[in-house]
């Protein structure tokens, strides 16, 4: 068991390394002098030179990379070229907001996706099944930002049920969470449906039926519990994707998260912040996927530890 965990964790190492390398390469591959990119286009010559020395941009690449990793390990991500604030402070401020949004979205996705999938599987080949299948397809085909805009238009502007944008009360959270959760809901519903169909066909469900157990009990206690294992896994992996999806949702709803920070800083060519935001989103994705793998290994006895 421990070996399995260790092996999983080791697989994540090249991924983490890859993220660091790519973020490191971003500024160096971008057209223009990296020192100017990191100092900001309006910085004076003195500041540019200071930045050049500070990040070792006048040294050979391997040395630059070592310095970059060293700074990273100390949480030193530089300063924003727009606000001159320490980037780490921006991240610290914004990151929990994105987590909050992604978490709310995954709750929405499970709360709607699992029942929809179960109904779809139980009522196979009926209109209910067709409706779930159709909406699931629609859910993955819809641009989230468009869905978000329509939601704002109808529920905030016309009906006035929710605030138009921003973060604060519980009401602020509802529309963004649903918007961000739409495609995950669709994916979880489809996954639940196929997992349920597979499980309902198996011997132990037939045995439960033969024992004379009631229909609902079979569904909940025997079938769903087994079908949920892959569903939870997919849901976990979706959580990682939500971190990236938040870029669009946060822009639509003016949600002060890390996704919007990323977009704003790209548009303002604020490279230190771009680097840090990408790093944090990608690392969270890796960590979440790793955790999902570990949990999966722990709850599913069928996983072999070799």
């Amino acid at each position: 068991m421990f070996q399995y965990f260790l092996r999983r964790a080791l697989v994540a190492v090249p991924a983490v390394l890859g993220v660091i390398v790519i973020v490191f390469a971003m500024v160096r591959l971008a057209p223009g002098d990296p020192a100017i990119l990191l100092a900001g286009e309006f910085a004076d010559q003195q500041t540019v030179e200071r930045i050049r020395v500070r990040f070792g941009l006048d040294r050979p690449m391997p040395e630059q990379f070592a310095l970059f990793v060293g700074n990273l390990a100390q949480g030193d991500l530089g300063r924003s070229t727009r606000t001159n604030r320490l980037v780490i402070n921006d991240i610290r401020e914004r990151f929990p907001n994105t987590l909050e949004l992604a978490f709310a979205a995954i709750v929405v996705a499970f709360a709607i996706g699992i029942p929809a999938g179960v109904i779809s599987a139980l009522k196979r080949n009926t209109w209910a099944d067709a409706a779930v299948t159709f909406f699931a397809l629609l859910g993955v085909s819809m641009p989230v930002f468009w869905f978000g805009l329509l939601a704002i238009l109808y529920f905030s502007v016309q009906l006035g049920w929710f605030p138009v944008s921003g973060r604060g009360t519980f009401g602020h959270l509802i529309l963004p969470a649903i918007t961000l959760g739409v495609s995950s809901t669709a994916i979880i519903a489809r996954m639940t449906r196929s997992a349920m169909l597979e499980v309902l066909d198996q011997d132990f469900v037939r045995t439960a039926r033969a024992k004379g157990l009631q229909g609902r009990l079979i569904v909940v206690k025997h079938a769903l519990r087994n079908a949920l294992i892959p569903v939870v896994t997919i849901g976990g992996l979706e959580f990682g994707n939500l971190m990236a999806g938040a870029v669009l949702t946060e822009t639509v709803f003016n949600w002060p998260g890390i996704g919007r920070l990323l977009v704003d800083s790209i548009l303002a060519r604020d490279y230190p912040v771009v680097q840090a935001s990408v790093l944090v989103i990608a690392l969270t994705f890796i960590v979440v996927n790793l955790l999902v793998d570990l949990v999966y290994g722990a709850i599913d006895p069928r996983i072999r530890y070799d």
């Binding site: 697989v11 090249p14 991924a15 983490v16 390394l17 890859g18 993220v19 390398v21 790519i22 990682g240 994707n241 971190m243 990236a244 999806g245 870029v247 669009l248 990408v278 989103i281 990608a282 994705f285 890796i286």
Partner: peptide
């Protein structure tokens, strides 16, 4: 491939 897949979706 792992390195590239470390970036979620649109990121």
């Amino acid at each position: 491939v792992d390195m590239l897949l470390a970036f979620p979706g649109i990121l």
